[in-house]
Amino acid sequence: MPASEKTLEDLFRDRFGGGRDLLEATVPARSEIAGNHTDHEGGDVIGGALDVQVHAVCALNGTNMVRIESLGYQPFKIDLGNLTPQESERESTASLARGMASELVASGREPLGFDLLMESSIPSGSGLSSSAAVELAFGRAMEGLWEGEPLDAVTLAKMAQRTENNFFGKPCGLLDQLAEALGGLAHMSFANPETPATEKLALDFEDYGYALVLVNVGSDHSALTNEYAAVPNEMKQVAAAFGKERLCEVDPAAFDERVNELRRDLGDRPVLRALHYWYENDIVAQRWEALKGGDIDAFLALTRASGASSAMYLQNVSVGGAPEQPAMVALGLAQRLLEGTGACRIHGGGFGGSIQAFVPVERVERFIAGMDGWLGKGASRHYRIVSEGAGYQWL
């Protein structure tokens, strides 16, 4: 059988051998529908699971080693006898496997060696949270292979967040992991970080005449971890000035009274990013109510307002001082093609990656052709929301 026709299970047996019970884990990508950098400050977000995924097949191997291979990448191993963060693994897939193993062991499971082969249909570096999907895939695989109690979506997502924070080295919030663990279209509130409140809504944007299109702007944001980290760090500087940890704990009226002092002590950008937080957080609540009420026009108007806030106040569309502004150019081009219809905004953490557009269904083909003509074939993709989140099953 040609390699191109083989299933992931076939390829697993080719690489690692057969004769073992196989477990399959699948995790969707996510689109940040609303809430740009609000989650880590205790705010609200809306996430949508997408119809692209990380797909893994695995089996126990009778050793104390985990052997992992992702199609198209170099394989690696981790020793289950050492589950502490490794400086040499920072920002690597190996760090995600080691971190999730540490989390699953901490939950009371006995670690057992296994082999895992995975593939991904999530475009790399496009802001769709492929790293969170990989974390969750490792977590679901270990959950199934190692005996223990089932893990609910919130518990698994928090394990993945700690892995990204402590092993990978990225100070992310919980949006990516929880949206992918839950699946569907979900409103999440992080005011209580231990028990985030969640609500799901069965909604297809295309029933209201609009398609979700994400555009890869052609910039690899993996090299911009420091710029990404500065966003929550600067928001937390403002919160710390009030003796708080997160902006959700700060009274906006007290902030207003101390603006001049904060500008003097912290600089203008932290102040602007705090202003974005309160503005954006209010917009999340309004957009969720608009979706629940089926008011797509209100939703789109608020989407445009969210995009403006991210660009002007949060300042995560372009890297300061850099002549390259791929995301800003992509937004400008998208608006030309939309001609006053739909909406577009920066997507995810920002600083390159992707932009999000809600495009009238009848314009989708022209929109994608136009954006691809400027940014390269395959830059744009039409996505659908899927109901299933991170899961596993025995084959």
Rank of each mutant, 00 (worst) to 15 (best):
E9G: 06
D10F: 02
L11A: 15
F12M: 12
D21P: 00
D21W: 01
L22V: 03
T26L: 14
P28F: 05
E32H: 03
I33R: 13
A34W: 10
G35Q: 08
E41A: 07
D44R: 15
L50Q: 09
L50W: 09
L60E: 06
L60T: 02
N61Y: 02
G62Y: 04
T63P: 00
M65Q: 11
E69G: 01
F76N: 06
D79K: 01
D79T: 00
D79C: 00
L80G: 09
P85A: 12
E91P: 00
T93S: 14
L96K: 08
G99S: 11
V105M: 04
A106E: 12
G108Q: 12
M118Q: 11
E119D: 05
A137H: 08
A153I: 00
K158A: 01
F167V: 08
L174F: 09
Q177E: 08
L178R: 06
A179L: 03
S189K: 10
S189I: 02
F190Y: 14
A191S: 12
A191N: 11
E194C: 05
L203Q: 14
L203C: 06
G209D: 09
L214I: 13
L214G: 03
V215M: 11
A223I: 07
A223V: 07
N233Y: 06
M235D: 04
Q237V: 04
V238F: 15
A253R: 07
F255A: 04
F255Q: 03
D265H: 11
R269P: 02
L272G: 12
Q286A: 14
R287W: 07
R287H: 02
A290S: 14
D297M: 09
D297H: 11
A298I: 14
A301S: 09
G307N: 07
M312R: 13
G320V: 13
G320Q: 15
L337R: 05
I346L: 15
G348H: 09
S354V: 03
V361R: 15
V361L: 14
E365K: 06
L375T: 06
G376T: 03
R381T: 01
Y383N: 13
S387Q: 03
A390R: 01
Y392N: 09
